[in-house]
Amino acid sequence: MAEAQLQQFLEKVRQLNAFVALTQAKTDVREALSACSNHHEVVALAAQNGFEIGRRWGDSGPAATQQHTSSSDQSNLLASACPPTGQERVELLIEGPGWRLERIHSCQASSPEGFWYDQSESEWVMVLRGSAKLQFHDEAEPRDLCAGDSLLIAPHRRHRVVTTDPDPGTLWLALFWSADA
């Protein structure tokens, strides 16, 4: 680990420890924390109290996310400006007969109420950065996904995006293919 990464990691741990100490010292902050239902609410509560815990270790900060390049010369799948809140940007990386590989950047995005994807293709998806909740029509609870998680979605298995991270957003890698290919 390079010294800069080590210092970034240690600062994140320091901020987390200080936030934990505050929640132990102040009943109102502890109650507010216990009322949080997801990671985004915890990050927002920490920020309201002067702590920066939202940046994931290894992220190089807001300046790095401004270095967007077009998909034809994309050299870093993690480097791009976050789309506007509630939206996502889909970039075709490569395709062939019966398949395509896409990079999807979502920012606090969700499927419209009542909408379910019902696609004829198989889809393998992986979260590269951030987190998301996916709901399958045949499952009672949404699935929590974070960086490194992947799953295979069979054709016509109805699903929807419940939520994705706010800025810097959630980055997905999605491979689609047809059974005919």
Rank of each mutant, 00 (worst) to 15 (best):
E31K: 12
I53Y: 04
A147I: 10
G61S: 05
A2F: 07
L152A: 11
L92Y: 01
W172N: 03
A44K: 14
A179K: 08
P112S: 15
T23F: 01
T170I: 03
S111G: 09
S106R: 05
A18G: 11
E3K: 10
S37T: 15
Q5M: 13
L101F: 11
N17L: 12
P142Q: 11
G98I: 08
E121R: 01
K133Q: 15
L6K: 06
G114S: 13
P97F: 08
K12D: 09
I104D: 02
S80K: 11
Q48C: 09
A174Q: 04
A154Y: 00
D73Y: 06
P62W: 08
A64N: 12
H68M: 11
V127F: 02
G130V: 07
W116G: 02
A44L: 13
Q87L: 11
A179V: 01
S75V: 15
F51M: 06
F9M: 11
F136P: 08
C36S: 08
H159C: 01
S70R: 07
S150F: 08
R103P: 10
A174C: 13
W124P: 01
S60F: 10
I104P: 00
A79P: 02
M1P: 07
A47W: 05
S131T: 14
L45P: 03
N38Q: 07
F19R: 04
Q135I: 04
G54P: 02
S70W: 06
A181R: 07
G169F: 09
L101Y: 05
D149W: 05
Q7M: 07
D149A: 15
